[in-house]
Simulated scan of single mutants.
Amino acid sequence: MPRASSAARMRGFTMIEVLVALAIIAIALAASLRAVGSLAASESELHGRLLAGWSADNALARLHLDHAWPDVGSQSFDCSQGNLQLTCTENVTSTPNPVFRRVEVTVSTPGRTGNLAQMVTVVANETSRSL
Rank of each mutant, 00 (worst) to 15 (best):
M1E: 14
M1K: 08
P2M: 13
S6I: 10
A8M: 13
R9T: 03
M10W: 02
F13R: 02
F13N: 03
F13G: 01
F13Y: 11
T14I: 01
I16L: 15
E17W: 02
V18H: 06
L19Q: 10
L19Y: 03
L19W: 13
L22K: 05
L22I: 14
A23V: 11
A23G: 15
I25V: 15
I25D: 05
I25L: 15
I25W: 04
I27S: 14
I27H: 01
I27L: 15
I27R: 09
A28H: 07
A28V: 14
A28P: 00
L29F: 12
A30S: 13
S32W: 07
L33Y: 05
R34G: 10
G37P: 05
G37L: 03
S38K: 07
A40V: 06
E43F: 06
E45Y: 02
L46W: 08
L46F: 01
L46A: 13
H47Y: 02
G48P: 03
R49T: 11
S55K: 06
D57P: 00
H64P: 03
L65V: 05
D66S: 12
H67F: 10
H67S: 13
A68W: 11
A68H: 06
W69V: 05
P70Q: 10
D71S: 15
V72D: 14
V72P: 05
G73F: 02
S76R: 10
F77H: 09
C79S: 10
S80N: 09
Q81E: 12
L84T: 13
Q85W: 07
L86K: 02
T89G: 00
S94C: 00
N97Q: 10
V99P: 05
V99L: 11
R101V: 13
R102W: 01
E104Q: 15
V105P: 00
V105F: 04
V105D: 07
T106Q: 11
T106I: 11
T106R: 13
T109R: 13
T113L: 06
T113E: 07
G114T: 04
L116P: 02
A117H: 01
